[in-house]
Design a protein around this nucleic acid. Structure first.
Length: 457
RNA sequence: GGCGCGAUAGCAAAGCGGUUAUGCACUGGAUUGCAAAUCCACGUAGGCCGGUUCGACUCCGGCUCGCGCCUCCA
């Protein structure tokens, strides 16, 4: 019963073994809070939340940290634009992010560190890097000297020469070497800043994660996750800073990166403007549908996001919940039952969620065919247990189909009763009229031998 | 220029060197007063060209096309 993880650093699938038995330390890069997040930002959250759920099942202690970047030039720009305090704007969007992610059934991480609360540690790490000869101060900046690290570039598998070959940016005059990156930069009077040995300034982007990991999780962590676009430069530079600051100690044992969410075959990104916010999608689809859509492909492959995908996800969930709705009893599955299931094994194989979903459907079919009571109960228990690991199917089926509006359903019941009477009276035209009336309002009626029930379309 | 990923049936998406993936949609049937839900039936899919093999969607090589990173980005 091994968990297999594809490690970006080795470009291979590996058996996962935490550094300390029973304890897993995981860190995932969170958002820079200056606007609402888009569905591409949500993918790592859902993917690593799923991993978090699996890890919690497998290990006694799982410490999962996901940061909030609340100091950044983009935040400064957005705050300046609407004449707002940076901290106010950041706090607002951090709260919006929380709200959206909760809708996606993402559990709260164990730790949510904020960058601005770790500036002291960032300065300390920078000083350490300067004193060890890995960084230098120049014109109020402090830069990391990439040439001071022998194997810089190993995570993203590129050499310094190759990188600079394709460079599309002008080299800042204070850099000794074109590939050097900023640890600390000066702030103007009207910009937020912190006092430091190099004057008033603020941290470079990569530094915060290194400092927060060091503070909360230690020098070496088991898993570091994020989107593919973070491999270079963000994670490469984090690795450089941390390992150089810690005398070469391993920074991360397993690097994991999720593939992009695409729109029309192209990467969704804020700069391209082709993004869909989670908030916008939540107006039309439940968080669970969105989550299910994000899990419909294995996390490392690209995922083309479309209305069609959401519709298919909705239909699939309807059919899974439909099976669950058929049985009222619940039972907890034997661990052996879950652990020997194909879906569980699939999840342990580098989070093969499509295959796990496939088993959910097979279990639903088993329930629908309903010949043996014990078998049916087991199938339901397994569905719920697998669903729990993926963060789906945990809602009460009745709520799933009817929504939470129990108080305004009386009129539906009245119409159903009226239709029932019409049927008894053989007034089928009237009965169909009522069905149509409800249909028009998005209510679907389902007759069965036990009477008529309804659900939202 | 360097590094990397992908191409599976209408759509989405997996495993696997030889035996039905799975879902959504469509069509036919059962069921129903009519529906819905459900069940049954139905798709030789695997970019192109070679090679290895008794046998390749699956391994190897080439080609074509698409995408990404090398700049802020999940």
């Amino acid at each position: 019963m091994n968990l297999n993880i594809y490690n970006t650093a080795t470009r291979k699938k590996e058996i996962f073994e935490p550094q300390e038995p029973d304890t897993v330390k995981m860190y995932v890069c969170g958002p820079t809070v200056y606007n609402l997040v888009h569905i591409g930002n949500a993918r790592p959250v859902v993917v690593f939340d799923t991993l978090f759920r699996i890890l919690r099942y497998l290990y006694k202690d799982v410490v999962y940290a996901r940061n909030i970047t609340d100091i950044d030039d983009k935040i400064m720009k957005a705050a300046a634009e609407n004449g707002e305090q940076i901290s106010v704007l950041a706090a607002r969007y951090a709260a919006e992010y929380d709200r959206d992610m909760a809708q996606l059934n993402a559990l709260q991480p164990s730790i949510v560190p904020y960058a601005t609360e770790h500036v002291g540690q960032m300065i300390a790490m920078t000083e350490k890097l300067v004193s060890k000869g890995h960084a230098y101060a120049a014109q109020g900046h402090v830069l990391f000297a990439v040439k001071s690290m022998a194997d810089y570039g190993r995570l993203s598998n590129r050499s310094l020469d190759d990188m600079l070959d394709g460079a599309r940016v002008e080299v800042a005059p204070y850099k000794k070497y074109a590939g050097d990156f900023v640890l600390w930069k000066p702030s103007a009077e009207n910009e937020p800043g912190w006092d430091s040995p190099w004057g008033r300034g603020r941290p470079g982007w990569h530094l915060e994660c290194s400092a927060m990991i060091e503070t909360h999780l230690g020098n070496t962590i088991d898993i570091h996750g994020g989107g593919r676009d973070l491999v270079f430069p963000h994670h490469e530079n984090e690795l450089a800073q941390s390992e150089c600051a810690h005398g070469g100690e391993t920074y991360v044992r397993y690097w994991m990166h999720n593939g992009y969410v695409n729109i029309d075959g192209e990467k969704m990104s804020k700069s391209l403007g082709n993004f869909r916010t989670v908030r916008e999608l939540l107006k039309k689809y439940s968080g669970e549908v969105i989550r299910f859509a994000l899990l419909s492909a294995q996390y490392r492959s690209e995922l083309d996001f479309s209305a069609d995908l959401l519709e298919q996800s909705k239909s699939s969930l309807d059919s899974l919940y439909g099976a669950l709705a058929k049985i009222s009893e619940e039972q907890v599955p034997e661990p052996s039952l879950l652990e020997s299931s194909a879906g569980f094994k699939a999840l342990l194989d580098d989070l093969n969620t499509p295959m796990a979903v496939s088993e959910l459907h097979q279990l639903a079919k088993q329930i629908n065919k309903a010949d043996d009571v014990k078998e049916v109960l087991q199938a339901k228990a397994l569905m719920l247990a697998l669903g729990d690991l993926m963060g789906v199917l945990q809602e009460d089926p009745e709520t799933w189909f009817k929504g939470d509006s129990s108080e305004d359903s009386a009129w539906i019941e009245e119409l159903i009763a009226a239709r029932q009477q019409a049927k008894v009276d053989k007034q089928y035209a009237r009965a169909d009229e009522i069905r149509e009336e409800l249909n028009a309002k998005g209510i679907v009626l389902e007759d069965s031998k036990d009477g008529t029930t309804w659900r939202k379309a």
